[in-house]
Computed example of a mutant assay.
Amino acid sequence: MSRTVLCRKYNKELPALTSAPFPGPAGIDILENVSQQAWAEWTEHQTRLINEKHLNMIDLQARKYLTEQRSKFLSGEEFDKADGYVPENKQ
């Protein structure tokens, strides 16, 4: 049986990540408090932000911005949307 966590974003028990997404305290916090579903949604949203806002990941300010947005997204707070993004019409 897979491990579950009380997901911070959805406030319900959901399947957990199998490992921390990156080293350090922030990675451990995500492992212990964020579901696979919320993390997958964040990685998709992060990609949209990087692409639509033309973020340079070498730039410290861009990385700081994404860290702030990740925290808001995973906590269920209001977060920035990607300007110009139009979701696929899945039929």
Rank of each mutant, 00 (worst) to 15 (best):
A20V: 08
I28Q: 15
L31D: 02
V86K: 13
A82T: 03
E13F: 10
T43Q: 07
N11D: 07
E68I: 14
D83Q: 15
A62D: 06
I28N: 14
D80L: 10
V86Y: 06
W42M: 06
S35Y: 11
A20T: 06
T4Q: 12
R8T: 03
T47C: 07
K81H: 13
G76T: 09
R63C: 04
G24C: 08
Y65E: 00
N89E: 13
F79G: 02
L55R: 04
K64W: 08
F73R: 14
Y65T: 02
A20F: 05
K81Y: 10
K9R: 15
I30K: 12
C7F: 04
Q37R: 15
P21D: 01
E52D: 03
A38W: 10
H54M: 05
W42Q: 04
N56C: 02
A16M: 11
G24L: 10
T4M: 09
E32V: 07
Y10T: 05
I50D: 02
F79A: 09
G76W: 11
V34C: 10
A20L: 06
A62F: 03
Q36S: 12
P21I: 01
A62L: 04
G24N: 08
L31R: 13
Q46C: 13
W42V: 07
K9Y: 02
E41S: 14
E13A: 12
E77L: 15
D29T: 07
K81P: 04
L14T: 06
G84Q: 06
T67M: 07
Q46N: 09
Y85S: 03
Q69Y: 05
G76R: 12
K9H: 10
V5C: 06
P87W: 04
A38R: 10
N56P: 01
L17H: 12
S35W: 09
Q69P: 03
P23L: 09
E77F: 14
I58G: 02
V34S: 04
L14A: 08
W42C: 05
Y65M: 09
E44Y: 07
K12M: 00
A38K: 10
Q46L: 03
Y85R: 07
K64F: 12
A40I: 12
T67W: 07
E44K: 14
L6I: 08
A26I: 07
E78T: 13
G24Y: 06
Q36K: 13
S75A: 11
W39T: 02
A38C: 09
F79L: 06
P87V: 02
I50Q: 07
Q36Y: 11
P21S: 01
K64H: 13
M57N: 09
I50M: 03
P25D: 00
A40M: 14
R8M: 05
L55I: 01
Y85D: 01
G24R: 06
S35C: 10
F73E: 05
V34Q: 05
V5H: 08
E77Y: 14
V5P: 11
C7S: 07
E13P: 13
E44H: 11
D29L: 06
N33I: 01
F73H: 13
Q37E: 15
Q36A: 08
R48P: 04
E77W: 14
L60Y: 03
S71G: 08
H54E: 00
K12N: 00
D83M: 14
S35A: 06
S19Y: 13
